[in-house]
Design a protein around this nucleic acid. Structure first.
Lengths: 284, 284
DNA sequence: TATAATAATGACTATTCGGTCACGTGTCAA
DNA sequence: TTGACACGTGACCGAATAGTCATTATTATA
């Protein structure tokens, strides 16, 4: 597990320095100080490595964003935190961010394209929620322009920082970006994007659909790995059982989830379950 | 020459559809309906093809920007035209733009790195000039923030259009971007970037230095290609001679340049000479 | 038409890459 | 000490690719 992580870190570094295609398995294993064969003990193929990398960082970023979204603070404060945690994430995961920005459209592997599109859609949705919470519904269709502007601002300042590494005052950067966002939200009268143009986008980039199957898949993956304490094993088994019933009871799902809350390796699982129960709650 | 252009066009198309690495010379020649050997009659190598492609589009874009800069209209009108011609360029050179947005050309070839850095510096300078002309000097050091914001807005909306091709109302898009720029310029009070942070950048990304040698290089290249009318050949020879003198006379350079003005294949040469004479004029 | 010059071809070479597998090597329990 | 087992190695394979070059086709010239 630790070796797997090490390979992923090195690979990401090389992928972003060069490109995915120009980085060979040999390059990666040499950088890791292991043999080529050892690589295939951790990953089925180069594609498999990529899928795992995308998966790992996507989850990491989405989880961090979600913490901000669920913080009981004002919209503008959330926006501020979102910007800040984004630049922090960038500091920590620059390699992945640049890689995913760059390789977005590559037809290397359909599974990865799919994942990156999902990721992009989630980011969009997150920002749209922040916009709604900060500026209310009176902003109307102009939210799509604002979203696009925000992404542009973030990209541009990110690009500057990335190409000129130094110690920057991220607080100050965050504050200026919040100000710019506020200004754009309050003073813009014209509008280029609208609901229908945007919709044509989302048909292509499908949002993640959180289904029971997806959660069970994640459960299965967690079961495979290391052994856990008895209470956790029992919780996992009960979760599995409950999810196999036609209509799982929310209280039980959430209750069992509470048992897993603390541990890092279950963060994605608990995230999925919370999202799932939330959508179920809305339906009824 | 025509075959060279054809190969370049097809190559860009394939590069943008797939990627540079995954597109083989064989793919390109097959798409062109020629043999592999024929490719190497036009280009020394795959790298050479890339350099020529980057060169070609860089010149095209810089020339178009320069037309806007020299237009005798107001600053805001220039800004408008700048945005518009940028999105027009996207429409007309979709394949190249999507390719360059996606690919990190840097690690492929040092020559390309140099060219892209020069290109980036020219774009920055162009936008800074537009900002100064539009908002005057009272904007002060905040122009760096504004420049970065403008680039971000352009990137973001470009990315949207590029990933969702359709017929867009570019006039409307341009107007909304001008409005956003105006709003940011007028209402921003905070500022992240400043002169000294920016300066640390320009030491890395050197601006193009237009020297006599550079012009002579371009002259040589134009000489190689096809034959021209007698008057043009004479003008080229005289230009060459004048540039070889220790201090070329501006009047002669500009006069001879006038003879080449009309033809497309000399547009870059005349651009270089004009820039060169302009800097000489400032020095004296 | 004959011959020289040029353009174009595609089989071939050398190299690289993803992936495999027979073969160590160290550890630990019996 | 033995043997079983997990971990790890790197030579090796087939496929693909950039680039070459002897040969052929086409055009220009006399």
């Amino acid at each position: 597990m630790s070796k797997k992580r090490m390979i992923m870190e090195k690979a990401i570094e090389l992928f972003s320095q060069n490109s995915i295609e120009t980085t060979s398995i040999q390059d990666i294993t040499t950088a890791c100080g292991i043999s080529k064969g050892a690589f295939y003990l951790s990953f089925k193929s180069k594609d498999d490595l990529l899928v795992e990398i995308v998966d790992y960082f996507m989850k990491k970023i989405i989880l961090k964003h979600n913490i901000v979204l669920n913080d009981p603070i004002s919209g503008e404060e959330k926006l501020r935190k979102f910007f800040y945690s984004n630049f922090k994430l960038l500091e920590e995961n620059y390699s992945f961010i640049t890689m995913s920005m760059r390789e977005q459209l590559h037809p290397i592997n359909d599974q990865i394209v799919q994942k990156l599109n999902e990721f992009s859609a989630i980011i969009d949705e997150t920002i749209l929620i922040l916009i709604s919470e900060t500026y209310g519904n009176l902003i109307g269709e102009k939210k799509f322009d604002l979203l696009t502007s925000i992404k542009g601002l973030m990209w541009s300042f990110t690009e500057f920082i990335a190409t000129h590494p130094a110690q920057y005052d991220l607080e100050k950067l965050t504050d200026t970006l919040v100000e710019k966002t506020n200004i754009l939200a309050k003073h813009s009268s014209m509008q280029f994007l609208n609901e229908s143009i945007w919709r044509s986008k989302s048909t292509q980039f499908n949002r993640i659909e959180i289904s029971k199957e997806k959660i069970l898949e994640e459960l299965e993956r967690n079961n495979e790995t290391t052994e856990h304490s008895p209470i956790i094993i029992e919780s996992l088994q009960l979760l599995k059982f409950e999810l196999h019933t036609p209509s799982p009871r929310l209280a039980i799902l959430l209750g069992l989830t509470a048992n897993l809350q603390q541990r890092d390796e279950f963060s994605w699982l608990t995230f999925l379950i919370k999202q799932y129960t939330a959508t179920l709650g809305n339906d009824s």
